[in-house]
Design a protein around this nucleic acid. Structure first.
Lengths: 258, 258
DNA sequence: CTTTATTGTGTAAAATTTACCAAATAGAAA
DNA sequence: TTTCTATTTGGTAAATTTTACACAATAAAG
């Protein structure tokens, strides 16, 4: 939790810099070595976990705001980041004057009537992807903790964030063959075994180790390099790199890459 | 244009019923007999055309608001309707005090300083689909006209609405095999030739007349009925109907239907 | 030079897509 | 009645793509 004065200023003057009624919530997925995790913020005052989120500055585009919000909890920018859906049920967040009074008391801030934070908010959902081993999660201005959770051990989340996780993961999986999603997850030069593991883990299912890379190479999404990597007492695997031009070209023409 | 008093009330008191900073813009596509059109609202005060749009009531979900907004210009509800993207560049709408003063003068409403309409708005993009021959377009509270435009004769639109048309059409086309999009465009019982024409027109390309229906039947998306239609001096074609269960099941399991 | 673990080529079988011929109508015209 | 015209469809061969899997090719340690 940040300084009380900073929080207080946000509650009183936030609407001058941020737009009310609209927030961004980010499903930040982390991959490393066959494991898929998601970043969750803990809120003591509300007694539960949420996806990291925040408001949009009046000077920012949505993508810029999402980048900033992701950076606040990961300290990383330039992750693979994509908008997937906007959530706008008026009942999705039940956050009325009473809740706000309770919240103010919990965090030790004087209660402010008619705060810009009261009232319904529509939330633009983004998902992001990174290597979780590179990230030391950081709690935000309003949250008390921030940690990686294994994708199949997610606690029940507050508000409609369970639905957000479900929708974002579904989008991530369907877009895996259309966008260079895995590109930010791997070093510039990687082996077939490495990219195979990424796809298997993100999709949550087995893929034939021999046919899978053939497909990617055939589609031109990755290119074989004339280099090998030394991996100890085994045959040295060739290195590959992404061909990002292929993705953009395929997206323009609308070609299917599955 | 509606009554001045109604418009004036909207400008002064709108924020009590609608959320500021967030709007919905709908790309309403109309199909009929091999033709694809789009519905555009004309604004004299701004000298151009836009997609029909509106604000979100504080009691509505996004889908409900989109339905209402679509109904305002088409007088129809229950069209195929889908959210595709949210647009949030702070520069996407340049609508400052000066513009608003000019607008107020044009429509003959006293100028109100600090109106809730001033300032940037984020817009949630929806697309809808209907049979344009069933629709008599209707201008809204702020617009002066509303008409169908052939999809390849769209005038340059205001703000970022050209991009919206492009994105929405792209989404419509990619989703055509995954969702029962054409279902609302055809009678409950239709011939293969009819659905073939719908797909060709919406996709903007030729599809093999013999293989195309075989695919739909094989996938189980449409079912052959034991009835024929009389079409004059030619062989009577069989009638088919959509199997909506197949779509929902395929969406659950994430199966690809292309 | 054998063993072990992993990479990666090649290929045959299975499944799917594509192209298109020709038969089956239904009524109009001869 | 018999042709003629326009359209709907069944069927099928060829082309392409996907899937399964045998086994050859390392690299280094023992």
């Amino acid at each position: 939790m940040n300084s009380i004065s900073e929080l207080q200023d946000f509650i009183i003057n936030g609407h001058k810099h941020y737009m009310p009624h609209i927030s961004i919530d980010a499903a930040i997925f982390g991959y490393h070595d066959h494991q898929l995790k998601i970043l969750l913020s803990g809120y003591k005052a509300m007694g539960g976990y949420c996806l990291p989120g925040g408001y949009i500055k009046r000077t920012e585009t949505l993508d810029e705001a999402a980048n900033r919000i992701v950076a606040e909890s990961t300290s990383l920018t330039d992750l693979y980041l994509k908008q997937y859906k906007t959530f706008g049920d008026p009942d999705r967040i039940k956050w009325n004057e009473l809740d706000f009074e309770k919240f103010s008391k919990e965090v030790g801030v004087p209660y402010i009537k008619d705060s810009w934070l009261i009232d319904q908010t529509i939330s633009v959902g983004y998902y992001a992807l990174t290597d979780f081993s590179l990230v030391t999660p950081k709690a935000g201005l309003l949250s008390d903790s921030c940690n990686w959770f294994n994708i199949d051990k997610i606690p029940p989340l507050l508000y409609d964030h369970d639905q957000m996780v479900k929708d974002s993961l579904h989008t991530l999986r369907t877009q895996l063959y259309y966008y260079p999603i895995a590109e930010k997850l791997l070093p510039a030069k990687f082996t077939l075994t490495e990219i195979h593991a990424v796809y298997e883990t993100l999709l949550g299912k087995k893929l034939d180790i021999r046919n899978f890379p053939k497909k990617l190479v055939f589609l031109g999404l990755i290119k074989k390099l004339n280099e090998k990597r030394n991996i100890g007492p085994h045959r040295a695997p060739f290195l590959y790199k992404f061909d990002l031009k292929k993705y953009t070209k395929a997206l323009e023409t609308g070609t299917t890459l599955t």
